[in-house]
Amino acid sequence: MSARYERMFAACAERDEGAVIPFLMLGDPDSETSIARINKLVAAGAHALELGIPFSDPVADGPVIVAAANRALTAGVTPARCFELVAQVRARHPDIPIGLLVYANLVFARGIDAFYRDAAVAGVDSVLVADVPLRESVPFRAAAVKHGVAHVLILPPDANDKTIVAVAKAGAAYTYVLGRAGVTGADRAAAMPARERLELLAQAGGPPPVIGFGISKPEHAHAARAAGAAGVIVGSALIGWLHDGNDAAARFVKLVEAARGTQ
């Protein structure tokens, strides 16, 4: 459930720091390496984990994450294997919030109820389904509630007030605030949302805003914090560093440090 997120966000607030959440594709480039990377990122100060299950047709993702999914699929990584990997991560890190990022067909193929049940059993705290917008989310949210998993919703950069309030009321754990339009990728940087938009989200009771898409530099983590966000998600940039052997853990630490003490 979102209790781990609540504790994590409360602890961040107490220490006056923003959460920095790495996104990794489970099984990229193979199961063992992805587990080793996750452990390294937790040691480097990750506040929560956002983990993808590879899908054949990820329309919300740019080239870096598409390539990560393809590497995992090529390595034979299935959703069942991903749940095993999550269970390993959970066993090793009992307190860290774990979110899954998936596409609708993987959920339908397993059965909506079974998917959330298996996620809960593996130790998952939240699920975000990239191609299930609010207007299609009812059966997904019902299954999430039933199995004690938080259903995370996305807030687009140009959402109107009505959408902000609706996402605030229906979302759980955290609100995935898009830093910009387009697909995932570090090639175009995030823009920070106007403070009043995040204030409206908070007034409507929305879960803490975390900014993703286009987060790659310490200044992004810093700016997100300054804009009133509770944290950032870094995916494509991180996967790029890891894939290129480009001192990923040290670069990640710089993001964590930049998100500290700026409120």
Binding site: A104, D131, P133, E136, I154, L155, P157, A181
Partner: peptide, 11 residues
Amino acid sequence: GGMFVPEILVP
């Protein structure tokens, strides 16, 4: 049927 797209495309 339905509208299974990322939230950003809904508008």
